[in-house]
Write a protein that binds this DNA or RNA. Structure first.
Lengths: 212, 212
DNA sequence: CCCGGGTGTTACCGATCGGTAACACCTGCT
DNA sequence: AGCAGGTGTTACCGATCGGTAACACCCGGG
C-alpha cells in the first residue's frame, strides 16, 4: 500500500529531549510508582521511547542508572536549598518555614507513594550500593544545614529543634503512604510555623505550640 | 563407619519451635535486613532450618508469607497498645509518653534499617497487595487511637497534636536509616514529653516546648 | 508390625531478569 | 556518493526467581 512515506516526519515521536534525559525521567517515574526492584530495565527503556541496548550505552548497569537518578534528585534538592537561602538571606526561620511549604506542596502531588529517597533507602539495604551512599551523604549535609539554621535562629536547643524539624519532614513524607490524610501538608506547615514562632525567645522552653 | 546412631538425637538441631514459627521468624529477619524483594524463598527456608517444599506446605505463596509476617508484627503492636492502655488507664498523656519510650528503645536496637512496616510499604507499591492492606488498616487504627488519646488529654487541637505525634514517631523511625544520629531516640522521647506537658493547659497555644 | 502424616531431597518448570553480540538502519556531514 | 556515529532490532546468554512433582524418609501410634 502507498502509506510508505506519508507520516514519515512523525515516525520518531519528536524526541525533544536527549535520550539520556528521557531514560532518566522514565526511570524516575517507574522507580517511584512501581518500586526500584519492581521494574525491569526493558520496561524503562520502552517507557523512554527507546530500547535496552541504547540504555546500556548510557549506563553501565541498572545500579548505576539508579544512582544517576538519585543524583539528579539530590542535585535538584540542593538547588532548592540554595535558592531558599538566597531568597531568605539572614532569615533562618523564614527558610525553615519556606522549606516546609515546598515539602507540603510536593506531598499534595504525591499520591500513595512517599518520598522517593526514603523509598529508595528501604529498597536498597546494601550499605555499599552507590545510590544509598549518595542519599545518606545528602541527608547528612541536609541535617547539618538545618542544624546551622537552627543555631542562627537562636533557638535554645538547636540540636533538639533541628531533629524536631527533621522528624516533622520525614514523618509527614512517611505518613503519605500510610494514611490518606489530607491535612498532612497543612499540618506540617502549621507545626513548623509554630515551632519557629515558639522558639523565638531564647529564655523560653517551648518547642512547638500545640495549645491554642 | 560406625557413626550411625552416635549423635542421632541432635541430628534435628532441636526444633524447639514449630516449623511455621521458625519460617516466620527467619523470614522476618531476612525481610528486614535484605529487603522483601531482595531475598528468595529458598534462602528463607534454609535459614529456618527447613526447605522450600515445607515452606510451601504452610504458605500458599511468597506474598502470603509476607502478609502473615506483617500480620504478626501488627498483632504484636496491637498487644502493646492494649498493654499500654491497661497500664496507664485514665492517663492518656502517660500512654503517649510511654509509647514514645518503647519506640525509642526499638530504634536503639535497629541498626541502619528503619521500621519494618514503613520499609514494607516502600517495597510493595501494589495497593492490592495483601500485606499492604494489612499495614494500612493498622496505621489507620493506630492513628484513630492516637487521636482519641489526644482528645482525652484535652489538647486544644487534638487533630493537629495527633498528627504531630504521628510525625514524630514516623520521622524518628525514618531517620534511623538516613543518619546515624545517636540522639534520635532520646530526642523523640524528649519531644513527646514536652508536647504532652506543653499542651496541658487548654488555653495555651504551644505544641512543643523547644525553648528551654 | 505396618501404617500414615509430617518432613526432607532432588529435580524440574516457565518466567523474568540484567546484560551482551551482531547487525541493520537512518541521518547528517563532507 | 560515501562515510561515520548514534540508534533500533533481534536474538541470545546465564542466573535467579517463585512454585511444583515425585519420591524417600523418619517417627509415633494403632
Amino acid at each position: 500500500m502507498l502509506e510508505g512515506d506519508m507520516t514519515r516526519r512523525t515516525q520518531k515521536p519528536r524526541p525533544a529531549l536527549p535520550v539520556r534525559e528521557r531514560i532518566l525521567i522514565a526511570a524516575g517515574n517507574l522507580f517511584h510508582t512501581q518500586g526500584i526492584r519492581g521494574i525491569g530495565v526493558e520496561a524503562i527503556a520502552e517507557a523512554a521511547g527507546t530500547n535496552k541496548m541504547t540504555l546500556y550505552r548510557y549506563f553501565d548497569s541498572k545500579d548505576e542508572l539508579i544512582a544517576e537518578w538519585v543524583k539528579g534528585i539530590v542535585a535538584h534538592k540542593e538547588e532548592e536549598w540554595n535558592d531558599l537561602s538566597a531568597r531568605h538571606r539572614g532569615d533562618p526561620r523564614g527558610q525553615l518555614v519556606d522549606w516546609s511549604h515546598r515539602v507540603a506542596a510536593k506531598l499534595a502531588a504525591m499520591e500513595q507513594r512517599g518520598s522517593a529517597l526514603a523509598n529508595a533507602l528501604a529498597e536498597l539495604p546494601d550499605p555499599d550500593h552507590p545510590a544509598r551512599r549518595v542519599i545518606q551523604a545528602y541527608k547528612v549535609r541536609e541535617h547539618k544545614r538545618v542544624l546551622k539554621l537552627c543555631r542562627e535562629a537562636g533557638f535554645a536547643d538547636p540540636e533538639l529543634t533541628a531533629n524536631l524539624f527533621y522528624f516533622l519532614l520525614e514523618g509527614a513524607s512517611g505518613c503519605v503512604q500510610c494514611i490518606g490524610m489530607k491535612r498532612i501538608g497543612e499540618d506540617l506547615v502549621e507545626l513548623v510555623q509554630r515551632m519557629v514562632k515558639d522558639a523565638r525567645s531564647r529564655g523560653g522552653t517551648r518547642v512547638i505550640d500545640v495549645t491554642h
